[in-house]
Simulated assay, not measured.
Amino acid sequence: MISEKFQNIIIKYLNKQASFMELEALEKWLEEDASHQKYFINYVKINYLIDLNVKEFDTQLAQQKLEAFIKKEKKVHKLKRTSVFLKYAAAIVIGIVSTTYFLKDELFPTQQNNSRTLEASKSTIEVGTDKAVLTLEDGSNIALTNGNSIQTKNATSNGKEIVYSNNTSTKSAIAYNYLTVPRGGQFFIKLSDGTQVWLNSESQLKYPVSFIDGELRKVELVYGEAYFNVSPSTQHKGSKFSVINKSQEITVLGTEFNVKAYKDESAIYTTLVEGSVAVAFDKNNQKLLPNQQLKLNISNNSSSIKTIDVEDEISWKNGIFSFRKKSLEDIMKVLSRWYDLDVKFENNALKNAGFNGIIGKDQKIEEILEIIKNYGILKEYEIKEKTVILK
């Protein structure tokens, strides 16, 4: 496998941070062995969201182009003593913009008839999209899909998001709506107080169409995952904002945080991005600091707090799957929700196989499986209708 040393150099090289000595080391390493070239391509495919049409670095032309590009870079690069790792999705996207020309157009010639190119998908598994079902206070349902605009007496939607009008309620007039996002979907909602919520696949949010002025603003994450950017209490006469679910309640004044509470998982994860939150459960009250995550085991109410890279945790709302030190079982659970598919492991040992990678949510499931396979984790996979079989 590729060593950590050369992973670091490749990352710095792709972000124009590599020193002259590092570029020379990379050039020498690539010339040493054809397997190094293969590892280089696989590493870039997995970590930079680039859909390459070849599985191997095995053409003389490709090698010549890479060597020429590195030599050119060596002439213009200066030593930079800056951070070498990409921790944020935004930085990764910037890296893609600056390297796509080199990696796709310059390094790899177009191969119309390349036998190794993935064949067009014949399965019924589709990439997830913006869609949800809105349940109004009278119990009626409205399908929200991309390109389909709707308007209710309290909100408007363009099929990608729903925005509620800014108004207040009285206790006698308060009404609730539900927004349900199915498997294979995602949706954005702006509540009447200005709070922004991103809902992940297989999630449901219950909320008032308008809040009572000056009183606690409360919503319920019935199940699933949601990212909240809460409108500050200073704009609402000091009223706090609360997110409840079956096992805990989160109270904030105004902040950004992520809650993951899926029905088929044994724990609830609350991750604070900025500001502060208090999480109450079973007579306990835990306060979180930015970059901390509270894990609550719902079977026995035990809890733990750890510091994490929040960008990995919230990358889903930015169109990216970020898998760091994740088992294949956990990864497939995420993919099953986004692609609305079922997963079968023929070899149970695969469930614990580890994988690190950053992959675009707009990729076909076949492309992602091929990447995982090329990385040596899978021997084979098969797709039967909406079931993925891992071998």
Rank of each mutant, 00 (worst) to 15 (best):
E4A: 13
K5M: 05
Y13P: 00
N15D: 07
F20Q: 10
M21N: 10
E22V: 01
L23H: 05
E31R: 13
E32W: 04
Q37C: 11
I41G: 01
N42E: 13
K45F: 00
Y48L: 05
I50T: 10
I50A: 03
L52H: 07
L52S: 08
E56M: 09
E56S: 09
Q63H: 12
Q64I: 13
E67N: 08
A68L: 06
E73A: 10
V76C: 08
R81W: 12
T82Y: 11
K87A: 10
K87S: 13
A90Y: 11
I92W: 05
I96Y: 13
S98I: 09
L103E: 02
L107N: 03
F108I: 15
T110E: 12
Q112D: 09
N114A: 14
E119S: 13
A120D: 03
A120I: 10
A120P: 00
S121M: 06
T124E: 14
T129Q: 07
V133Y: 07
N148P: 00
N148V: 14
Q151A: 14
E161Q: 15
N166P: 01
K171P: 07
Y176F: 15
Y178P: 00
G185D: 04
K190A: 10
Q196E: 15
S201E: 05
Q204Y: 06
K206Y: 07
E215A: 05
K218F: 00
K218Q: 13
V219E: 02
Y223K: 09
Y223M: 00
G224W: 02
G224P: 00
G224E: 03
E225N: 10
A226N: 09
Y227C: 03
H236A: 14
K237S: 15
K237P: 06
G238D: 06
K240D: 13
S247R: 08
T255H: 01
F257I: 02
K260P: 00
D264H: 03
E265I: 10
E265G: 00
I268F: 08
Y269S: 11
L272G: 08
L272A: 07
L272Y: 08
V279H: 02
N285T: 13
K287E: 12
L288N: 02
L288P: 00
K295W: 00
N297T: 15
S304G: 14
I305N: 01
T307G: 00
D309H: 08
E313F: 04
W316K: 01
K317S: 11
N318C: 04
S322Y: 07
F323R: 03
K325Y: 11
K325P: 00
S327V: 03
M332K: 04
M332H: 04
K333F: 12
S336D: 03
L341W: 02
V343S: 08
N348V: 13
N348Q: 14
L350I: 04
K351D: 04
I359V: 14
I359E: 06
K361L: 06
I365D: 05
I368F: 09
L369G: 01
Y375F: 12
I377F: 03
I377V: 15
E380N: 14
K391H: 14
